[in-house]
Simulated assay, not measured.
Amino acid sequence: MFRIEAEVDKARRDLLHSRLRDTNTAASPVLAALRGTPGAREVPLHVWALDENGGLAGGLVGHTWATWLHVTYLWVDAVHRGAGLGSRLLSRAEHIATTRSCTASRLETWDFQAPRFYQKQGYEVVCVIPDYPPGITEYTLTKRLC
């Protein structure tokens, strides 16, 4: 008999993540080969742009793992949009990722956000999920860094 629970539990989440990683590593020669290398763990990657008063003008939050950069968030304050700041943040993150031996980058964006911006930066659409969330289309894009 099992008891099913639905609650936020950081310790269980971390245990589940660890066990899933171990299972995946055991099943995949590529992931097994990564074990013990610098690329085997997620390493945070953050790039910030501050305005002349030290306020947040934009930023990028992501991580590197297994020779990939994963861009989680990229945001530029409305007053600074159109001036190339987003391109500079993304370029800086890609450069840092290459110093960590990354050869590719991936990200997700919605149709009302920036799919065309990323395509101008050399990203290609590899997945389209319509109606996620309802009424919106999500795109997954990738780019070769080397």
Rank of each mutant, 00 (worst) to 15 (best):
R13T: 02
D14K: 15
D14I: 12
L15Y: 06
L16T: 07
L16M: 11
H17W: 07
H17Q: 11
S18Q: 10
R19K: 14
R19P: 04
R19N: 06
R19M: 06
L20C: 05
L20D: 01
R21A: 01
D22M: 06
T23A: 11
T23E: 08
T23P: 08
T23G: 12
N24E: 01
N24L: 10
N24G: 09
T25N: 00
A26T: 03
A27V: 02
A27S: 07
A27F: 08
S28V: 07
P29W: 00
P29R: 10
V30I: 05
L31R: 15
L31N: 05
L31K: 11
A33D: 13
A33H: 14
L34R: 15
L34Y: 10
R35Q: 15
R35L: 13
T37K: 15
T37N: 12
P38G: 08
P38K: 14
P38F: 02
A40K: 14
R41T: 13
E42D: 07
E42W: 05
E42F: 06
V43P: 13
V43I: 13
P44L: 05
P44T: 03
L45Q: 06
V47R: 14
V47T: 01
W48I: 13
W48N: 12
W48H: 13
W48P: 11
L50G: 13
D51W: 12
D51N: 15
D51F: 05
D51E: 12
L56H: 09
L56V: 13
A57N: 15
G58F: 07
G59N: 11
L60M: 12
G62H: 08
G62L: 07
H63W: 09
T64K: 13
W65Q: 10
A66L: 02
A66S: 08
T67K: 13
T67P: 02
T67V: 00
L69H: 14
L69T: 12
H70A: 10
H70N: 12
V71T: 08
V71R: 14
V71K: 11
T72G: 10
T72V: 10
L74A: 02
W75V: 08
W75E: 07
W75M: 04
V76E: 00
V76H: 03
V76S: 05
A78W: 03
H80E: 00
H80A: 06
H80Y: 13
H80V: 00
H80G: 00
H80D: 00
H80N: 01
R81D: 00
R81A: 03
R81V: 02
G82S: 01
A83C: 10
G84H: 12
L85W: 10
L85E: 03
S87E: 12
R88W: 02
R88H: 07
L89Q: 05
L89V: 02
S91D: 07
S91I: 00
S91M: 06
S91Y: 02
S91T: 07
R92K: 14
R92E: 06
R92A: 09
R92N: 04
A93D: 03
E94Y: 03
E94N: 09
H95N: 05
I96K: 11
I96R: 15
I96H: 11
I96C: 03
T98W: 02
T99N: 06
T99R: 14
R100H: 10
S101F: 00
S101K: 14
C102M: 06
C102T: 02
A104K: 15
R106W: 05
L107P: 07
